[in-house]
């Protein structure tokens, strides 16, 4: 991570902390997250609900409500310090340099406008063209994302399209201004399995063709295996393990990653119960002083809850925040899904 961070990195997060402040409590949603993303790379952030994946993404675009959120640390995207951008610069960043695909294609499109007009609006906002040119570009984009009979779909309202088509329209909108970085917040979760794989393949293809960097948030390990170059596993607002997709999913060095892999369906398991991780994630209002996974960990030791385990680097950008990272207890390694 930090050791191979270079100045030409597309995204650089350093010690990012996001806290939601309300009268009753302060929720530490993201704690000391550092990561880098090179141009043209796909990073998958994996984690369960409430682990801070989506919040980190929204912090990247400063989409969180300013009044109730405290963001500290450094965020730089394409050489710009995101936390210091104001007014026009910020809206140029949003949609121009970075754009985002949302989870629910049902609600992320405005129901009262035709999809063509919505894409045209996004195009014209950044390129300052008229409606005709915007619609032409919208048609090109719909063809790019392989929407069948694109010309007719331009004039369709969102409710007239299926979930998969709507998500394609969302992708077209996100690509409208040729962003350098695409943030995808569980874009396939709301789709059914066959459509999911189509959208994934499409995203991967477009990402390669356009040379974009992409941060892909998911809780589905299969999706991560399909699309990612590198993987970051988040737990309770911290990155607990990073590395290439083969390393992390093939040879997990953090007990949480191992637990997640064990709780998926894989070969030779018919009739056997799936192994679940016992317990619940910690309360983000009162994080434990030590390792936040310690209460649920199978391999817990006495020193685990004394202090936060340091980041253990294992070369090649591989990191695990576990005291036992370099010498994991013997586990059958056949649990990893074939990649």
């Amino acid at each position: 991570m930090i050791e191979n961070s270079t100045s030409n990195a597309l995204v650089e997060l350093k010690d990012l902390n996001v806290k939601f402040v309300s009268r009753e409590a302060t929720v530490s949603a993201v704690n000391n997250v550092s990561l880098t993303l090179k141009a043209g790379e796909v990073l998958c952030i994996i984690g369960e609900s409430g682990s801070g994946k989506s919040v980190s993404m929204r912090a990247l675009m400063r989409l969180l409500p300013e009044r109730r959120t405290k963001i500290t640390g450094e965020i730089s995207v394409a050489g710009k310090n995101v936390l210091e951008l104001q007014g026009k610069e910020l809206s140029d960043l949003r949609g121009g340099t970075v754009s985002m695909i949302f989870q629910e294609p049902m609600t992320a499109l405005d129901p009262v406008y035709r999809v063509g007009d919505q894409i045209a609006e996004a195009v014209c906002r950044h390129e300052g063209c008229d409606r005709e040119m915007g619609l032409e570009r919208a048609l090109e984009l719909l063809e790019l994302v392989k929407v069948p009979s694109a010309e007719r779909r331009l004039k369709a309202y969102p409710h007239e399209l299926s979930g998969g088509l709507r998500q394609r329209v969302m992708i077209a909108m996100a690509l409208s201004c040729r962003p350098k970085l695409l943030l995808a917040d569980e874009p396939t979760t709301a789709l059914d399995a066959t459509v999911q794989i189509q959208v994934l393949i499409l995203l991967r293809k477009l990402q390669r063709e356009m040379g974009m960097g992409m941060i892909f948030v998911t809780h589905d390990l299969g999706v991560a295996a399909e699309i990612a170059d590198r993987v970051a596993v988040m737990y309770a607002g911290r990155i607990v393990e990073t590395g290439t997709v083969q390393e992390v999913l093939g040879d997990p060095r953090h007990p949480y990653t191992r637990g997640m892999l064990a709780s998926t369906v894989h070969g030779n398991m018919r009739g056997k119960d799936i192994e679940a991780i016992p317990g619940n994630p910690p309360d983000l209002r009162r994080l434990p002083t030590g390792c936040s996974f310690a209460p649920r960990c199978k391999d817990v030791t006495a020193s685990c809850s004394e202090a936060l385990p340091p980041e253990v680097f294992m070369g090649g950008g591989r990191m695990s925040r576990c005291l036992l990272a370099s010498a994991p207890p013997d586990e059958p390694k056949s649990m990893a899904p074939a990649i």
Partner: peptide
């Protein structure tokens, strides 16, 4: 879609 609009600048 309001957040999406904000995200697109």
């Amino acid at each position: 879609f309001v957040e999406a609009a904000r995200a697109s600048g």
